[in-house]
Simulated scan of single mutants.
Amino acid sequence: MNLNSPLLEIEDKSRVFHYEDRYLLESGEDLAGFQIAYTIYGNPEALDSHVIWINHALTGNADVHEWWSGLVGEDKFYDPKQYKIICTNLLGSCYGSTNPLSSNPETGKPYFYQFPQLTTRDMAGALEKLREHLGVEHIHTLVGGSLGGQVALEWTYQLGSRLDYSIIIAANAKSTPWIRGFNEAQRMAIQADCTWGEEIAEAGKSGLRAARAIGMLTYRHPDTFQQSQDDMEEKLDNYKVSSYLQYQGKKLADRFHALSYWVLTKAMDSHDLGRGRGGTERALQGIKAKMLTVGIDTDQLFRKEESQYISENCLDGKYSEISSSYGHDAFLIEYEQLHYILKSFYLYTENGK
């Protein structure tokens, strides 16, 4: 089979997987079934040896070729003419997967604040249910950044020898007090919204705007703000950075909802690969896939040392670094560097290094 043939039709289909059985969660709670929205993009004839599975970050969706267009797309690094590319909307997110605004099958009403606590391990387990449903016996490469990287690392451990390559970008093996602190500050902003607690879809919307503004201070580096938001003229109010953060807050609140944001940041806080497995070092040593971790030199949220820690403790790990003034968000921006890093990693491993 010639995977590079221009005659092959390229699939780009959004689908929904329905899991009908009761799904037990780490908290001891359960979901009476769930659904996950996912997209298959690429060569419909591709073998499992050409399956690329990509996880999105905190507020992303399953349309990976939209938010990672520099790496996924025709004639890009992950080319749908060569690969079958699968991307899912993580459990708890509001882009087609079961989330707090979904109907609870047991009551017929939205979950709202009764939605159970999710962990990154629960999210990875849901992806495993989807893999089994799709009949994908083996995955060539699993990729994830930020929250998606945390979930990808959890799933890497669970997949064992069913996975060849794991690429974890700007993530860690266990959430730090620093990350949990920023997430708590964002949730406090949501709680301060007078609509929080009401059983309406718009609950916490103004608070979510403030939460996003707080988050933006961790997604970028101070140098980025200095370069793009500094006021050249003298003034006493109405600074550029104020309007920028107001805009970013409104932009997210108009496309996302506070209840999902709450659940997903709580899941990020819960992340601990070593929980119940003898600690993170021991868990990392149990990973069978070839591991690449990518840190960002200016990342203030997921520090590069945390990425290094993962690769150093895996049996077959390699670390690479993005140099950028963009901070944590660099993995969504610095495509040329990522292209070089990914290409070098595959060549490195294929040569038996």
Rank of each mutant, 00 (worst) to 15 (best):
Y239I: 03
E128L: 14
G148W: 05
G125S: 11
T39L: 12
Y165S: 08
T88C: 10
S260A: 13
E184G: 01
Y244S: 04
M123E: 06
Y340N: 12
Y95S: 11
R220L: 05
V136M: 11
F256V: 04
G279R: 10
Q226C: 10
Q114K: 14
L31R: 10
I190C: 05
E26A: 13
L315I: 11
G279V: 11
R209E: 15
E336L: 05
C194E: 14
N351G: 15
A211K: 07
Y319Q: 04
Y340H: 13
G197H: 07
Q150C: 13
I40L: 15
R209N: 10
T265P: 02
E202N: 04
G278T: 07
Y165K: 11
T280Q: 13
S206G: 11
F302P: 03
R282N: 14
T293A: 09
I333R: 15
D193P: 05
S228F: 14
F182M: 10
L142N: 00
V263R: 09
G204H: 08
G295F: 02
Y19T: 08
K304I: 09
S243H: 15
E132L: 14
D30M: 09
N172Q: 14
Q117S: 13
G60M: 09
V51G: 01
I310V: 15
K235E: 05
Q150V: 05
A211W: 06
L273G: 03
N61A: 11
A171W: 02
G96C: 10
F77Q: 00
P105W: 09
N172H: 10
I200G: 01
S93I: 02
E312C: 03
D299H: 07
L3Q: 09
Q158C: 04
M232W: 15
A170W: 01
S97C: 07
G160T: 08
H140V: 00
D63Y: 15
P116D: 06
W53F: 15
Y335C: 01
L264I: 15
N61M: 04
E202W: 06
K13F: 04
L264W: 05
H257M: 06
Q117M: 14
Q158F: 06
A289Q: 01
A289M: 05
N313C: 02
L127K: 02
Q35P: 00
L338R: 03
K318F: 12
L347D: 15
Q186I: 05
G249P: 03
D254L: 06
M123W: 02
M188C: 07
G149W: 02
D231S: 12
N4P: 00
D272R: 06
A57Q: 12
K290Q: 13
L134W: 08
A289F: 03
K240I: 13
N43Y: 09
K84F: 05
Y78T: 00
G207Q: 09
G352A: 12
A185Q: 12
G33W: 08
E202A: 13
N99G: 04
N104Q: 10
L347Y: 09
Y19M: 08
V294R: 04
N172D: 12
F115T: 01
I85N: 06
G60Q: 08
E234Q: 14
C314S: 09
H271W: 08
A124W: 03
S161Q: 13
G215Y: 11
V263N: 04
R180W: 03
L101K: 04
M188I: 13
D79L: 01
R282P: 00
R255A: 03
L3H: 14
Q191C: 09
Q114G: 11
A170R: 01
R277N: 12
R255S: 07
G92S: 10
Y239D: 03
G42D: 03
